[in-house]
């Protein structure tokens, strides 16, 4: 059994070590991308004219192959994890910016009016009303960005030993060992599925206020909520 998970020595890593590296290289750029996307998205919400050009820029950046990024970055950041992570972070913007903009815009006008009328300034309104209500949309974006990032990390093998499970796949081809190829592909897929499930769990924890389709209707006294049952 253990033979299955034996890793060629040129990778200088254990199986679990590869998984850890893969996750780190996939998740950190997405989180950084999220932090960068939040203010950009808020600007796009406030200045409507800014949104189309920003969207255009993120799409163009997404169209640049990671190899091209590597060629440029390698002079500055070398054959490091950072070189792998920068393009992944940039790619995540194409998902995050529209997700956050749509999420923030989905806040009903009357909710915003109510907040304004209660004397919430723009900062409070953003932090206490718009952002929390945009959480489901943001997490939906986070799921797409993370899963796509997990699959893209493998490209890091192009600049040496930075592709984690990608290098494992590469080794499988070099040494003609289908076991390594299967191990790499299946592990990557399982990682993506598990991380996605964790994010769904996070969303459920953060949004107890969302109607849940599957949960049974809880009738309020006197005026039962029957719509849920009918769905």
């Amino acid at each position: 059994m253990n033979d299955w998970f034996r890793i060629p020595s040129d990778l200088q890593n254990s199986y679990l070590g590869l998984i850890g590296l893969h996750l780190r290289e996939a998740v950190i750029p997405v989180l950084v991308g999220l932090v960068v996307a939040l203010p950009i998205a808020q600007l796009c919400v406030r200045l409507r004219w800014l949104y189309p050009p920003v969207l255009w820029v993120t799409t163009v950046l997404y169209a640049i192959p990671s190899l091209a990024f590597f060629v440029v970055l390698i002079d500055y950041t070398g054959q490091t994890e950072t070189t792998v992570m920068i393009p992944l972070g940039v790619y995540s913007l194409v998902v995050f910016v529209p997700a956050i903009v749509d999420g923030v815009r989905s806040v009903p006008q009357e909710t915003l009016d109510a907040a304004t009328a209660m004397g919430l300034g723009p900062v409070r309104r953003y932090l206490q009303v718009q952002l929390p209500i945009a959480v489901p949309a943001i997490i939906a974006g986070l799921r797409v960005a993370t899963v796509s990032s997990i699959s893209l990390v493998s490209v890091g093998m192009l600049i040496g030993n930075q592709g984690a499970l990608g290098n494992l796949l590469n080794d499988g081809q070099i040494y003609h060992q289908p076991r390594l190829i299967w191990l790499s592909v299946i592990t990557t897929a399982v990682l993506a599925i598990v991380v996605d499930a964790v994010l769904v769990g996070v969303r459920l924890l953060l949004t107890p206020w969302m109607p849940r389709g599957t949960r049974k209707a809880r009738p309020a006294p006197a005026e039962p909520v029957t719509e849920d049952a009918a769905r």
Binding site: P108, E110, A114, A115, A117, M118, V129, I133, T207, W209
Partner: peptide, 12 residues
């Protein structure tokens, strides 16, 4: 201030 459809904070 009270408005049509109440405008409640759905997340609270």
């Amino acid at each position: 201030y009270v408005i049509q459809n109440a405008g409640l904070f759905q997340h609270r």
